[in-house]
Nucleic acid binder design. Structure first.
Lengths: 209, 209, 209, 209
DNA sequence: CATGAATGAGCCTTCATTCAT
DNA sequence: CATGAATGAAGGCTCATTCAT
């Protein structure tokens, strides 16, 4: 019975977290309502405060960077040249960001929240974004060589991430500009290919320049 | 007397618009409250509805694409090669987006709203973003030549804009990553230089590839 | 110039009164807004308060029982038997209440306000309704003769007025019950005929009973 | 514990409904404020929205036609001649409308709202008024026989209801005309008797005419 | 332990009215 | 004298949160 209770309780927690990821990533933190999250999780209105203390607490717990980290680890251990690894990273990152079928809407929240800083931003930056920038910084460094300054290297990282995230956070705009746009797997991979080509051309020019 | 009245009224309107641009660009449309806007404009709570009909109406009026359009016009009529005009565009665009002293925090709202679509988004897209993409599309076409497909051309435009807007809408994140970052004129111009270099290298590679 | 000013001023007053009668009779006192009245009168928002002190004051002035009084006077001096005069009264009264083309939406306000007592109700009762009841009381008395008690006579008056006003103040309900219902002149006269028949049959029964 | 909770909740609901009936019937739908209703029900301002979704929803729930329907059912199954059943109907209907002690101020709202159509009007008409008209239509038909047209039959129903409802919705006016008027049980029954006499005389005349 | 009920602050908006000109 | 601008109280409603059970 105790086990059952705990299980039920933990199931509720899990459903709340899943629902929170859904709603936060669709509506943003401000736009999301505790009621909607609880409704989708089939839980009581008070459940969020009961389990996570507050809406903020729920966000902090809901953030889950597992897939993003896995992506980096896989990439770092891939037995490939840096150029191909950048291409792979962009591919995986874009799939994570844009693919509706991706198991991890989880990280999309991340991008969604950037425009609307919340108390959770520090956590996001420390746990996910800073390591991501560092990871990409190392990868870029491998590509451009040692002649390029650290500052410039950082800016290259931003150039890559800027291209990627634009497709995610400007989706409503891009949909209006090209109404036939659909982020199916083919389209996502084509976009990723473009970003990789575009970025690698620029990075190689830097190395050679 | 009449003149004075008109002036007073228009001053209130102007104060409301200025306050609205401030608050909208800081908090987004949802996060902004009419009360806060009126407080900053030193106006009554009802002033917004009196002058603009609604919060939506205020946003619609607050959006002012004059500077963005001027930037494009100047650029299109500049007697320069396309590469230099792209460089000029990025420079002007980044100054508009990032320079605190820029007379137009106005357009910054634009980017701010993209993450949180409102009824005003259609207006923004139609009046400002679509023309901007078309303008950049022509410029990119001039650079890459006729061998590159239209789709790829559009993606190049997005690559340029993605890099630019990332600095604006991810400002809170970037500040946390590099706390010493200040968007003074030198920094902005250095960033713009990087984006132009990065993008031109990629575009020229496309032309030659 | 003074004359002109006075004229303009009085024209505005007149337009306001006319608009007020329109709006009050359509929306009731509470539902009517000063702004809408001023809009229809093509006058300033402040005009109502300027000319009539307040919304209440406007209602008090807008009430105009001229047509209702004229109707009674005409009726009283008609050279007809009481039965025909009752029939005539019902006919004229229903036209006044229901005919859209009637020059006097004016009095319709009266009925409209009865459900929603305002400070103006005393005026309405004293100036219009009490005289109307007295007038009808005399007419009914002529028909039923002297055997019927005064109380019963008053109730007969109410029976007649109740039938008439129901068509006016329950119009939205009756429209829903019989959607094809239109208050054109033929329909109004048919209704008036029914009410007169119904009432006269009852009154004659009282006289003979 | 559960029972108590349910009871507490239902008590709040009941208090809100009771207060709503009071305030709606005194002030009309527009004039009534959620705050006043909650104040009288000793509940929070948000209670109405919590329990009924909106002010409209509260009205929809507050309307309770049980007594009105019971009245018709009783009447239809009474083992009496149509004339006596009409007399009985008028008697019961007037008691329902006018008796302060009647458990159902509930239905009085009905008449009150008719002058000020709201989204709830459709519900009122469909659920209460249309059946009432049909019921009375059948009763009138039994009295007048088959020679009278359907249209005329409907007008007779309106004549009866018009007389009845006038006493309710013109109460403020009638009070001013005859200040000594009190709707005690005797008075109500006398009025009902008058209306029944008046109407039956007219209906019998139609049958014989 | 978990919940449905209740809370009150705050949202945008509407309104009759006032005031400076 | 007449007006457009401005006012502030109040409206219905939403929300994250708390509380009694």
């Amino acid at each position: 019975m105790t086990d059952q209770t705990i299980t039920a309780c933990e199931q509720t927690r899990a459903r709340l977290l899943e629902a929170a990821r859904e709603v936060f990533s669709q509506c943003g933190f401000q736009g999301a309502t505790v009621r909607e999250i609880c409704r989708r999780a089939d839980a009581n209105v008070a459940a969020v405060n009961y389990h996570f203390g507050s809406k903020d607490g729920l966000l902090a717990e809901a953030l889950n960077f597992a897939q993003l980290k896995a992506l980096q680890t896989e990439n770092a251990t891939a037995d490939k040249c840096p150029e191909k690894r950048l291409r792979l990273f962009v591919h995986d990152f874009m799939l994570m960001l844009l693919d509706e079928k991706s198991a991890s809407r989880q990280c999309r929240m991340m991008a969604r929240e950037l425009a609307d800083p919340t108390p959770a931003l520090d956590k996001i930056v420390t746990e996910a974004i800073a390591p991501l920038h560092e990871f990409l910084g190392r990868l870029v460094r491998e590509i451009v060589g040692s002649k390029v300054s650290e500052t410039e290297c950082r800016r290259c990282v931003i150039s890559v991430l800027g291209q990627c995230s634009f497709y995610y956070h400007s989706e409503p705009v891009l949909q209006r500009l090209t109404p036939e746009l659909r982020y199916d797997r083919n389209e996502i991979e084509a976009i990723a290919g473009h970003i990789a080509d575009f970025s690698l051309a620029a990075l190689l020019a830097k190395r050679n320049g």
